[in-house]
Design a protein around this nucleic acid. Structure first.
Lengths: 145, 145
DNA sequence: CTATAACCTATAAGATTAGTAGGTAAAATA
DNA sequence: TATTTTACCTACTAATCTTATAGGTTATAG
């Protein structure tokens, strides 16, 4: 029942881009140092984010990555669904779930569906911009749910 | 971000006990057949549940397992925290989390805390008894959150 | 005393996580 | 054009977690 480092690092990376890359490209090297995350591991994450069109990269000197939209246009839900594969809370609701023959009599399925809805709604209600302003209004977002 | 089979099977096992064992002990063999879960795997789950005092076992003929309380006195949260180890949504909030030195400046920690609270509250709001009556009022529980 | 069923310890295959290693391609600059 | 810089790409790996299985021991009922 855990969000893995991959998804968490992706969020921190996006926040870092939002905070430091108003218009310029930001080097992975800098993000790696600021966030204390291996540059190589970050690379594998940017590949995913780039292919999904969330960020764009530029080669060579002066290159790096930057956001393709403004921070308030990225929800955490979108980022996590891309980097974690899915936000399903049980295997039978996941992307590669095979049809379960107990489905019609399953006493727990509705509960998992409700939880999955809750989790997705929670993350879809928070944007990168929300996490940036956190200094002033610490931990207040997401609490309304 | 998934509840594993261990936790899910534990819930099904508890429901099975609640439905079939009004006062008698229920054999694992029967639960195994009804739920289509390996008896050996169920054994490892009952060990955990028994040690935590949620169920009690009896040896020999006529033996088996039964609940120690009535179904409405077990929350899903309690069962899952025991069988899954924890319901933390990120490693840094888990049981064996080592102190994170980024904690004071972490832009995402409040979000994880809010989510963990949400998930725990969700599961603590549902009992075994709720899951039993599901036939009539399918999927209605937990929706109030 | 025998059958039954929980209880206990150890092992293990498979999948996932969390990276690492080493190269290639493209862009800027000298 | 040569060099540096940076993203981009493919493959590999160590460690951990999940999902069990195997085989034996203990306690109880009849």
């Amino acid at each position: 029942m855990m969000i893995s480092t991959r998804g968490r690092y992706a969020i921190r990376l996006m926040i870092d881009l939002a905070e430091h890359g108003t218009s310029d490209y930001i080097r992975l090297k800098d993000i790696s140092e600021r966030q204390d995350i291996s540059q190589k591991y970050l690379e594998s994450i940017t590949t995913t984010l780039s292919k999904s069109g969330l960020i764009e990269g530029a080669h060579g000197k002066g290159g790096g990555y930057k956001l393709k939209r403004s921070p308030e246009e990225y929800t955490i839900g979108e980022i996590l669904r891309i980097t974690e594969g899915s936000l399903a809370t049980v295997a039978c609701l996941g992307c590669d779930a095979k049809k379960c023959e107990r489905e019609s009599v399953c006493r727990t399925l509705p509960m998992w569906k409700n939880l999955s809805q809750l989790v997705n709604d929670f993350f879809d209600g928070i944007t990168i911009a929300d996490l940036m302003k956190q200094d002033s209004e610490a931990g207040f977002f997401g609490a309304a749910l």
